[in-house]
Design a protein around this nucleic acid. Structure first.
Lengths: 137, 137
DNA sequence: ATAATCTCTCTAGTAACTATAGGTTCAAGG
DNA sequence: CCTTGAACCTATAGTTACTAGAGAGATTAT
């Protein structure tokens, strides 16, 4: 049996986060000692590792809850699993595109300034006037 | 004189957000009518446009507050302005890199699965076992 | 004058935690 | 067996940048 600290060390999930996940229903409430401390089994270790991994991949808690539910049923079709993953992938790609646009624009703005005084700093100027932008963002 | 609705329409910043910015000290408290409604001038229109533009570029409120303060002083060196912009640019680039890594990994995971049943779905499997990952994330 | 629209304040909710306070339990050493 | 220090407990509030809603009052057009 693992204490919450043990579980934390093994998964890399911080202790308050583990309690938070329990509160959010992502992991089941574990057994307790007589003194009311949580004790975990390897089942919960696996489950939390799964969650951690999914979080590291950027999935949100709802998506993870859904995935976890789906994975409990080995005979079901896994189309839903793929759909969650693909939606997430699409979201990531959109974010990447947006950030790339921002990067370009910011770079252009910063490079456009060759003065040392705020009074004629192109960065400030560009921020003041959206019309100076090369593209949407 | 502009009402808060006018200001909102002209800047694209929602009304509650304008009030929020006032509360946060990003914009000064404007004049009021006898009936206690806010009335804005073109000064505030400019300021809010500046803020909106900076937000659209992804700058956070603290950074914007700093930029706005700096821009009030035309004789100061603009090194600090550039430093804020460059820090932000660095942050954006880091985010892009992280998302690109995530995208690759997720893509690999999703493509690796050619079954239809949850029981042997590679996506679930990959999430359960971090060792199956090709790289860090 | 009245109706329709706008605005006011205040509170609470969002996502996913993190931090803190004040108290209890556990495990190891003497 | 007892002590002590580390680990654990709950509950509450704070983080970021808003957004939603309630209930009341103001403004504008007809």
């Amino acid at each position: 049996m693992l204490s919450i600290g043990d579980l934390s060390r093994r998964t890399g999930v911080k202790i308050p986060t583990i309690r938070y996940y329990e509160q959010m229903g992502l992991i089941a409430a574990p057994e307790r000692t007589e003194g009311n401390q949580r004790r975990y089994t390897s089942t919960e270790l696996q489950r939390l590792s799964f969650i951690k991994h999914a979080r590291d991949l950027g999935l949100n808690i709802n998506a993870i809850r859904d995935l976890a539910e789906l994975s409990a049923d080995p005979d079901k079709p896994c189309a839903d699993v793929h759909s969650i993953a693909n939606d997430h992938l699409t979201g990531i790609r959109e974010k990447i595109l947006r950030l790339l646009r921002l990067e370009k624009e910011l770079q252009r703005i910063v490079r456009g300034c060759d003065t040392d005084q705020v009074g004629d700093c192109r960065v400030i100027e560009a921020l003041c006037d959206h019309a100076l932008c090369a593209q949407d963002h």
